[in-house]
């Protein structure tokens, strides 16, 4: 008798625990929705004030006006795990948001491999990727393309076979490049990478993997005949200090690094494209692209069209040097370019 009451009591407690568990799971979902909704809210308030000056560029890249995204299914936009990607995620998200699309932004999801897996499994519907990395890491295609168009067409063909679409590339490219101090460039009459072949015992600082990569020392040897190199392995981010202190003559940098704006360093031209092409393309699930209608693609393309190397450098500097938030920097940029 007593035992059975205890048993019933235990069943009630267990049921209660389960109910609390389920309720909390539910609220955890709605909780994350509210956070994204509230951040989306701030960006929409920003956008309503500045949605006047749309459609500046050519007709193909004109941003649609109004709210063509209203009523379309929600999309999930991912971005990878570094500063430039956070800015790109905010740029595309806020622009889509302003056109009435419902966008959930999953920031900082990880490396290319993780982003690709998330896209293939449908956890995200699109993310910004660099064309060269798309070809090598996602498509497993290590061919060296002489032009950016050929690299893009190869990537597009692979994407089409696998249910994604690569939208048009941005003008900016975030590739490796070799930078020197302007005084050093003048003293040694350097304008392009090949000029470095004249320097004896060239002190070159770069991440350790630069030593073996085809787009590193082997490529420099093959395409430019740069052989007399003293290699300094450096962590990404520390190469500017090493240049400033003249511990090295030239550093491997990324073309959109914030540090490069303002003329403190000279970036050597790469006429033989040893470093390949890393223009950016939004990789979108083809199914989602058609479900969202043409205005979705037009909005993304209008943003991409405004992303020049200088613009990316300035935005990266605003976040990585001046520590502004990616959301604020993206909003300021979109407003200035009539995309909100």
């Amino acid at each position: 008798m007593k035992q059975s009451t205890l048993r019933i009591g235990l069943v009630i407690v267990a049921a209660l625990a389960l109910a609390i568990g389920i309720a909390a799971c539910g609220s955890s979902n709605s909780g994350s929705d509210t956070t994204s909704a509230s951040t989306a809210g701030t960006s929409t308030t920003g956008s309503t004030t500045a949605s006047t000056g749309a459609s500046t560029g050519a007709s193909t890249t004109a941003a649609p006006s109004g709210k063509p995204g209203a009523g379309r299914p929600a999309v999930t936009l991912g971005d990878k795990n570094f500063t430039e990607q956070y800015i790109l995620g905010q740029l595309y998200r806020q622009a889509l948001d302003a056109r009435g699309f419902t966008v959930r932004l999953k920031e900082n999801i990880g490396s290319t491999e993780i982003a690709d897996r998330a896209l293939r499994s449908g956890q995200i519907d699109l993310y910004p990727e660099y064309i060269g990395i798309f070809n090598t890491t996602v498509a497993g295609d290590t061919k060296v393309y002489p032009t950016v168009d050929e690299a893009y067409q190869a990537g597009r063909a692979y994407a089409e076979r696998h249910g994604f679409t690569l939208l048009p590339l941005t003008p900016f490219t975030d590739t490796d490049a070799l930078a020197v101090l302007p005084a050093y460039a003048r003293a040694n009459n350097l304008t392009q990478v090949g000029d470095l072949a004249r320097i004896r015992g060239l002190k070159l600082g770069a991440p350790p993997e630069f030593r073996q990569r085809a787009t590193g020392l082997p490529g420099l040897r093959r395409l430019y005949g740069i052989t007399d190199v003293q290699f300094f392995p450096l962590t990404i981010g520390l190469q500017y200090q090493a240049l400033d202190s003249k511990r090295i003559d030239t550093a491997d940098v990324f073309t959109t690094d914030g540090q490069l704006q303002g003329g403190r360093y000279t970036v050597l031209r790469d006429p033989r494209n040893v470093f390949g092409f890393q223009n950016l393309t939004p990789v979108v699930s083809t199914r989602v692209l058609s479900a969202e209608g043409p205005a979705f693609e037009q909005t993304l393309n209008a943003v991409s069209a405004k992303l020049t190397t200088e613009a990316m450098q300035r935005m990266n500097a605003a976040v990585s040097i001046d520590k502004q938030s990616p959301a604020d920097v993206a909003r300021t940029y979109l407003q200035a370019n009539g995309l909100l």
Partner: peptide, 13 residues
């Protein structure tokens, strides 16, 4: 491959 439009306005951040 790339989309080009009028040069962007780069505001102060």
């Amino acid at each position: 491959a790339a989309v080009f439009a009028a040069a962007p306005v780069i505001p102060s951040f």
